[in-house]
Design a protein around this nucleic acid. Structure first.
Lengths: 242, 242
DNA sequence: GTTCGACGTCGAACACTGTTCGAGAACGGA
DNA sequence: TCCGTTCTCGAACAGTGTTCGACGTCGAAC
C-alpha cells in the first residue's frame, strides 16, 4: 500500500532562522543522513537519539524540536531509502514486475536491516509511486484484472520486505565472530540442518529425509527469485482467456 | 527452513531439586507461559525480564540461571506457538498447502506481534515438522518437483509470517485511542489513502488514479488469501506436463 | 551430624534507551 | 527595546538487558 501523503513541516520559518543564526540550526536532512550512515555501518538498532545528538555535538533533547520522536526520524530514513528504488523498464509485463521486485530488494539490501522499517508504515515517495504506476500499467496493459494487479503489488512488496529482513537476521545468527565469509558460515549452518533432517526417522518423515538435499539447496538470491517468479506465474494464470 | 534440533537442558537434576526445595525452583515452562500471556494481552514488547521476574516474585537475575538470556526465552515462546499449528488435511494438494498457510496464520494471529519472533530463527518443533512433511508429500505426490516444493515451503512460511506481523503493525497505526472497532479505523485510514490516490495528477499517474478503488479494496484476509492462492497457482505451473 | 560442591537466588550496579520539563539563549518583527 | 517564537540543553524520569558476587539451599559422601 502506497501513500502519496506529503510530510508537511514549517520549513520557511526554519530556513529563515538558519540563515541568520550564530550556530546553524540542526538540520533534519543531515540527521537523517547520519542515521542512515549508522544503519549502513552497524544496523538499525545502533541508531539512538543520544548517539545522533552526540554526532552533532548537541544533546538528545535538541532533536525533539525537529522531529516528533525517533519513530518519525526513522520514517524519514525509510523515505530516503525508498527513493533509491529504480524504476523498472522492459517490454514484457513480467520483466517489469520482476525487475521492480529486484530493484526494491537491491535498495533495501544496501542498508542492513532497514527493511524492518517498512512494517506498519505506509511507504511513500515519488520513486515508489512511479514504480507502482509503471508496474500497475504493465500488468493491466497485459490483461491482468485491475484488482489482481493492485493486490499483487501489495503482496510482492510485502514479500520483498520480508525476504530482505529475514536474510539480514539469518546472517546475524550465522556470525560467530570468526570473520569468515558469510557464505561459508551459511553453508556450515545448513549442512547441520541437512544432517538433522537426514537423521529424522524415515518412517515418520519419509519426504523430508529423502529430499533433505532439496530443502537446503540454493542461497537467498535463488530463493528470492523463485518466490517472485512463482508468484508472477500465478498472476499470469489470472489473465482471462482471449 | 525447519530445524529439528532439540533444545537440550539438564532436566533431571533440576526436577530432583524442585521436589525437595523449600520454595519451588523457578520453572521455565511457567516463565514461557507467562511471557505468552503478556504477549497476548499487550504485545511482544511488554515482555521484560524484570516484569516476568516480578510476576514470579523474584528478581530478574534469577531468570539467568534458567535461560541464557531474553532471546532464548523468546525462542521458547515461539516454539510454544509453533506447536499450535494444525496439521492440514484434504485430498487435493492445493487444499493441503493453502490449509497449512491458513493454519500458520491462525496460530500466529492469536498472539499479537509474536510472528516477529520468526525472523532470523530457524523454526522447530514436532508440529511444524509434521506439517512440513504433510505439505511436502502432498506437493511431490502431485508431481511438483522436489526442489520447487522445498522452496515453496520456505517462501510461503515467510509470507505468512510477514503478513501477520504487518497486519498487527498496521493495526497499531490505526489505533487512535477512541476504542472504535478496528475495521472502522482501517476503513477510515484507507479512505484517506484513496482520496490521495485520486488527487494525484492523472497525466502522470493514470493507472493509479483510475484504479484507486482497486488499490484499497479488500481487507487483510482477502489479501492474504489472494497472495497464497496466487503463489500456489504459480507452483502448479511448475508441474511438468504428462 | 558435618563438609563440600552444585545449583539457585538476589541486590546492586553497569551501561544503555526514549522522552519530557523548564530555564535560558537566540532571533526577528513591530 | 520589547515580545513572542524558535531552538538549545541539562537534569531527570522511567524504563531496558545483563553481570557480578555474596549468600542460601540442597543432596551426596563421609
Amino acid at each position: 500500500m502506497t501513500d502519496p501523503s506529503p510530510v508537511s513541516r514549517p520549513e520557511r520559518s526554519r530556513a529563515r532562522a538558519a540563515r541568520t543564526r550564530r550556530r546553524p540550526v540542526l538540520d533534519v536532512d543531515a540527521l537523517v543522513g547520519r542515521a542512515l550512515e549508522i544503519i549502513d555501518a552497524e544496523g538499525l538498532d545502533a541508531v539512538s537519539m543520544r548517539r545522533l545528538a552526540a554526532d552533532f555535538d548537541t544533546g538528545p533533547a535538541t532533536l525533539y524540536s525537529h522531529v516528533a520522536g525517533k519513530d518519525e526520524l526513522l520514517g524519514l530514513v525509510l523515505a530516503r531509502i525508498l527513493d533509491e528504488i529504480q524504476i523498472p523498464d522492459g517490454d514484457d509485463w513480467r520483466e517489469v514486475v520482476i525487475g521492480w521486485c529486484h530493484a526494491q530488494r537491491d535498495a533495501f539490501q544496501r542498508h542492513n536491516d532497514a527493511a524492518r522499517l517498512c512494517f506498519g508504515r505506509v511507504p511513500n515517495g515519488d520513486a515508489l509511486l512511479e514504480g507502482c504506476e509503471r508496474v500497475l500499467g504493465a500488468m493491466i496493459g497485459a490483461g491482468v484484472p485491475p484488482q489482481v494487479a493492485a493486490w499483487a503489488i501489495d503482496a510482492l512488496t510485502l514479500y520483498v520486505t520480508a525476504d530482505v529482513f529475514e536474510g539480514w537476521m539469518m546472517a546475524q545468527q550465522f556470525d560467530d565472530g570468526s570473520g569468515r565469509p558469510l557464505e561459508d558460515l551459511a553453508m556450515e549452518h545448513f549442512r547441520g540442518v541437512h544432517e538433522r533432517f537426514r537423521a529424522l526417522p524415515p518412517e515418520r518423515y519419509p519426504f523430508i529425509t529423502t529430499h533433505a538435499d532439496a530443502m537446503i539447496e540454493g542461497d537467498g538470491d535463488d530463493r528470492f527469485a523463485f518466490g517472485i517468479e512463482t508468484f508472477v506465474a500465478g498472476i499470469a494464470c489470472r489473465i482471462p482467456e482471449g
